[in-house]
Design a protein around this nucleic acid. Structure first.
Lengths: 216, 216
DNA sequence: GATTATTTCAAACGTTTGTATGAAACAATC
DNA sequence: GATTGTTTCATACAAACGTTTGAAATAATC
């Protein structure tokens, strides 16, 4: 029952922090949603800030088990691994899945860092970055400079994140159905082909699928 | 003197809103930075929210004159216009230029919209989107679907925005010099080449130009 | 220069905020 | 079953918040 309240607090706090941001989230709101007493936060966490940190840490722990991307066989071609990487990342961002606030609160942290940011980067982002860099190492010519590899990685991740971070803009820009216009696998497919073409590992992203040819 | 205070309030508010977000910014802080009396906000704007809206609107007005991208000659090739578009956008995001909060507060609004978001999109974002779409219309084959053109546009903008929005992550990831590792023109060059290659209008982004071959 | 209208100011208002307290309820241990 | 440690609860507190007020100060109008 003890840890139970604590966990309920973290969950409620996570939702509200992710939704409204740190300052706008009040301890009273959080406790109410957690069915806990007002004093519970200070009893279990000492202060509001620590509850926030705990929420971020929890989200990051939960999502960490995702991080070792779907075990792909050692002999899987780099191109397919890139495709799988992009698909997985998209699925995690946009799929309806488990608590939405897990991602939300971490992305908030990454865009506007507090004390918890470094930990998120090291434990959650860095492994993903390493996975991607591993793929790119196989995919790109050896002589390529470190900076250039980073930039290509950023180009990939930037494309993916855009659809999450700027969903509201997309909705306003293309109107009606908004982002639902783009089925998830279509997005993943686009980014994959866009990227592969950019690095010379696939045909250009132009109209007819006829031009696609021998990818997978 | 009257409008003067009002303007000082907007400027001070813009800085603080952009830095700390709406809730965390207190009227007292704002008035202090603006050298104005505490009651000035309510006198000139009625309430805090309206001051925020005024700040966003002001930022958007100031930046709007930027929007008609550097007049390029009618006969300028689409490829060069794309390059210019990307360079300009990068320069606006990352260059040391005028009040940083202008962009900051608008991006905040775009990522986490309030009532002012729609206006920003219509007056600031939409024209940029149209410019880009014009370029892409010339650059891409005619038969390409509407959705696909949007996705390509998003792939471009996503790459650029990434360097601004996730600067803190980049800094943590690649350590030391952080984003300063990448000179501005190098970033613009990378995104341009990456994009052109992706859509089959340029050689792949790989080290040796030898592998490029007959794409364009 | 008297009379307006506009703008500033210090002070106060009522809320809401995060936090603290001490008693009650509960669980565990002996 | 008494004792101890843990967790909940209602309540209180001081501080900070956005907002209001009414009187000064300033500017504008005649």
């Amino acid at each position: 029952m003890a840890d139970d309240t604590k966990q309920r607090l973290i969950d409620a706090a996570g939702e509200i922090f992710a939704e409204k941001g740190y300052e706008a989230a009040s301890i009273r709101d959080i406790c109410q949603r957690a069915d806990a007493n007002l004093a519970a936060v200070n009893y279990h966490f000492g202060e509001k800030r620590q509850l926030y940190v705990a929420a971020v840490r929890h989200a990051q722990c939960c999502r960490q088990e995702d991080v070792p991307f779907p075990e792909w066989p050692a002999d899987m071609p780099a191109i397919d691994r890139l495709r799988a990487f992009i698909e997985t990342m998209f699925a995690r961002m946009l799929a309806g899945q488990r608590p939405r606030w897990h991602l939300e609160i971490m992305l908030r942290e990454l865009a506007r860092p507090t004390e918890a940011c470094a930990a998120v980067v090291e434990d959650y982002i860095r492994p993903m970055a390493n996975t991607l860099r591993g793929i790119l190492r196989d995919l790109l010519p050896d002589g390529m400079s470190e900076e250039q590899r980073w930039m290509i990685g950023f180009s990939i991740v930037g494309q993916i994140l855009f659809y999450y971070v700027h969903q509201p803009v997309i909705r306003l820009l293309i109107g009606h159905a908004g982002i639902e216009t783009f089925p998830l696998d279509q997005l993943a497919d686009h980014v994959t082909r866009f990227t592969l073409a950019a690095i010379g590992a696939g045909p250009a992203v132009i109209r007819s699928p006829s031009a696609v040819g021998s990818l997978s």
